[in-house]
Amino acid sequence: MDLILFLVFAAIAVGCGINLVVQTHPISSALSLIGVMGSLAILYLLLGAEFLAAAQLIVYAGAIMVLFVFVIMLLNAGAERKPASRSYAKLFGVPLLVVFLGLIAYIVQTFLPKTEGVQFGKFTGGGAYEIGIKLFTDYLLPFEIVSVLILVAIFGAIVLARKEID
């Protein structure tokens, strides 16, 4: 059951990821990215990260990607024109990427103990309670710094957006 779920959603994630790269229209890419995020949320659930699975959908799919789609719709961005001079990038880039991935797969397979398998329900430490405890004890300072970062980002976005109205 775990394996089937993993394979199905991993396939969806990779398929959507490939679609993101090959589609020329930004809205198709955005939708593919949402597909990747949705299937990753399921994989997080399989890994016992139920809080993050929900956060993934709320923050990434529900807020960030809506913002992307909003901007694409607002600018009415069309499909990009195919640049002719970029063929050499594909000629060398794609094989190099495949080699890189093969290398990583090889390294991961060699160095990780093969006995360990991921089973749903074996690790239940990813609930809201555990994350909350950890976040507000050990990681309090990073948490505060990140909230300041968010504040700065809000200021930045407002300043940039305001310039546009004038």
Partner: peptide, 25 residues
């Protein structure tokens, strides 16, 4: 019954925006 029931509802309804946005686009 989910441990994160409230979050689940928030998550699913927030994905529902795409239905409306994509219909418009």
């Amino acid at each position: 019954d989910l441990n994160v029931g409230v979050l689940f509802i928030l998550a699913v309804t927030s994905v529902g925006v795409y239905g409306v946005a994509l219909a418009g686009w």
